[in-house]
Design a protein around this nucleic acid. Structure first.
Lengths: 193, 193
DNA sequence: AGATTAATATACCGTTCGGTATACAAAAAG
DNA sequence: CTTTTTGTATACCGAACGGTATATTAATCT
């Protein structure tokens, strides 16, 4: 692993464990066995490091989500696919997933929140569009597509958070397709009745 | 408002807006028009201020939750009552509610997280007990009471978060009993099928 | 009235913060 | 074989951090 990647990895671990604001630049470079100018050489600033981390880790997930959300398939299939992608993203690096969520729920004025926000806005908007297409076919959503998008994302996250709490550090059990189906069904029951 | 209360109010606003770590003691006392030794006189430390804030604001909510969770009524009624109490708590001070949630989702090693944790553990455990009593009557929960408790709390929060996003700053619409019912029903459908 | 306590301020402590000027080594390019 | 570029380190910056020693004012008690 090169030093740039190493710095991002160390930063991720510390940001996850202690929170973005509570971690000093000094602490990151010490964990990596490097010095501050090296970090500033690659990232320019502490927030630049976080932004690069988001870019390299979140963008692929976002791409997959957009692909699934824009597919012209049945809403249930679309939601199932979105659940699948999100679980895979969680399983790939649970620390990173939990870091994203912590940042998402942090204060609006915080610069770390402002760094993650655009990604979640994009995520959310592509899911809104999926519901809008569905409304075009069924026409009974009463303009609640935005609420459904937040609700769906929230349901998935709630499920993964529960996984996380249940299964804290040791070897995580793979989430089955059956489990994803049941989460999607539960959500759809709440929406379409 | 006395200076002690004033300091807590200013701290709450700042913690909500910028996050616990990002707010300096200096900033809090400046907003209150006071000086640092006054804050240290009342609270001993920055974390002491947060703890006092939690004590004075969270404890009443927690008491109501315990009362409702321990009532010997039907599980649906219990959950409805819990939903009602939580919505009231949210409506009483939405900033404080969102601050609690941000702290709950923040990093485990963070001292602010460790300050809120005991309250949420208690909250969660009293709800677990409610499900356990229900299992004693129905006997079909397969030891998933803890999951149901997190799931229920998560569902309520998801709903309130959605309210918050929909209705950001202006005069908030009161949440109706009908809305609470539908959230509880949605949750119960997911559980008891 | 005098003594005591509660509440607040001035001015400072050492530490850590994010960030940088400068130098130097290694590697790539000419 | 120079020259340039890339990567890394030493040593430092001013500002802000959480916290405190001490003094002073205002209220309470005896």
């Amino acid at each position: 692993m090169n030093n740039k990647t190493l710095l991002m990895e160390c930063a991720k671990e510390l940001f996850y464990a202690k929170g973005y604001d509570a971690v000093g630049v000094q602490e990151i470079v010490e964990r990596a066995g490097l010095t501050k100018p090296t970090l500033y050489y690659y990232f320019g600033s502490k927030i630049g490091l976080l932004k690069t981390l988001l870019e390299t880790r979140f963008e692929r997930y976002l791409f997959q989500v957009k692909e699934a959300a824009e597919a012209e398939s049945d809403i249930r299939d679309t939601l199932y696919r979105l659940g699948e992608i999100s679980c895979a993203f969680y399983e790939e690096d649970r620390q990173f997933y939990m870091l994203m969520m912590a940042l998402l729920y942090s204060a609006r004025e915080n610069e770390a929140y402002q760094a993650v926000r655009p990604y979640f806005v994009e995520l959310y908007e592509s899911i809104v569009r999926a519901f809008e297409r569905e409304a075009g076919r069924l026409g009974n959503m009463r303009g609640r597509q935005r609420q459904f998008a937040i609700g769906f994302l929230g349901t998935i996250h709630q499920y993964l958070f529960l996984q996380w709490e249940t299964d804290p550090e040791e070897n995580p059990g793979k989430i089955s397709g059956e489990q994803i189906s049941s989460v999607v069904d539960q959500f759809m029951y709440g929406i379409f009745t």
